[in-house]
Amino acid sequence: MPYEMIADYTIRRWYVQEQEILTNETYQPDAGAPLRKILIAAAIRNPYAGRFSADLGEIVDGSDKLGEAFAQRILAALGGAKAESYGKACVVGAAGEYEHGNAFITARFATPIRAVLPGAKEWIPSTGKRSGPGALIDIPLAHMAELYARSFYDTMTVHFDDAPNPDEIIVAFVVATRGRIHARLGGPEAPAAG
C-alpha cells in the first residue's frame, strides 16, 4: 500500500525531526542535561479540500485515533526520556481552510497524547497557517504541568520539504525534555521532574 490509513485519514508521509541543544546561544552550558526537542508530524489528505462544509466531522471524528498513533511515535522518539513541555500545529495546503487544520488538533486529538506523557495536565499551545511545499512553522512550547513556568516557553522551528500539497494538511506535535538552557527570568517554577 503506498499510503497509511488511520481512521478515515490517508497519510502520505510521516516526519520525525530532533534537535539536541547543548548550550545557550552564547555557548554557556548549565548543570542540566541537553535539551531535546522532538517533532512528530504527518502529511494527511484533506477531505474538505476545495469545498466548504459547515460540518467538519470527517476530520474531528477520528482524531482520537490519530492522536493514539502520534502518542506511540512520540514515545518511540523519546526512547525512555521524559517530556516536560509540548506544543502542536497544523499547516494547511492552499485548497483548504485554516479551520480544517484546527479541526485536526482539538482536545480530541491531544487527549491520547497527553495520556502517555506522565504529568501532562495543562492545555497545549498551538499555532497554524496555510502554506505549500517547503513550509516552515514555529511551534510554541509550554510546560505540561505548569503553564506559567516561563523557563519552558520556547519554540521549535520545523521544515516540511515536500508538504503540504494543496489538498493536504500537516498535523504536527512537538515535545521537549526540559526548559531553556540558562533560563533566568523568574516566575512560577515547574514541578520537579519525577
Rank of each mutant, 00 (worst) to 15 (best):
M1C: 15
P2N: 15
Y3N: 13
M5I: 14
Y9M: 15
I11W: 04
I11Y: 08
R12D: 13
R12N: 15
R13I: 03
W14K: 05
V16Q: 14
I21W: 04
L22K: 14
Y27P: 00
Q28H: 09
D30C: 11
G32V: 06
G32M: 07
L35H: 01
L35D: 01
R36W: 12
K37F: 05
I40N: 10
I44G: 03
Y48S: 04
A49H: 05
A49L: 05
S53K: 03
A54G: 12
A54M: 10
L56A: 13
E58W: 06
I59N: 01
V60E: 15
D64K: 00
D64R: 13
K65D: 11
L66M: 14
E68W: 03
E68L: 09
E68T: 14
A69V: 13
A76D: 13
S85K: 08
K88L: 09
C90P: 01
G93D: 02
E97F: 13
H100G: 02
G101L: 04
I105H: 00
T106C: 02
T106Y: 01
A110T: 09
T111G: 00
T111C: 03
T111V: 10
T111Q: 10
L117D: 01
K121E: 09
E122W: 03
E122L: 02
W123I: 13
G128H: 07
R130G: 09
P133N: 13
G134W: 03
L136E: 11
I137H: 00
D138I: 00
P140S: 07
L141C: 02
M144P: 00
A145V: 00
E146N: 05
Y148W: 07
Y148R: 12
A149V: 02
A149Q: 01
A149N: 01
A149F: 02
A149K: 03
T155Y: 06
T157M: 08
T157H: 06
H159T: 11
D161G: 13
D161S: 15
D162R: 15
P166W: 14
P166L: 15
D167K: 04
E168M: 12
V171R: 08
V171N: 11
A172D: 02
F173V: 15
V174E: 08
V175Q: 08
A176T: 07
A176R: 06
R178P: 02
R180P: 00
R180K: 14
I181G: 09
I181T: 06
H182T: 12
A183D: 04
R184D: 11
P188F: 00
P188H: 01
A190F: 03
P191C: 07
A193Y: 02
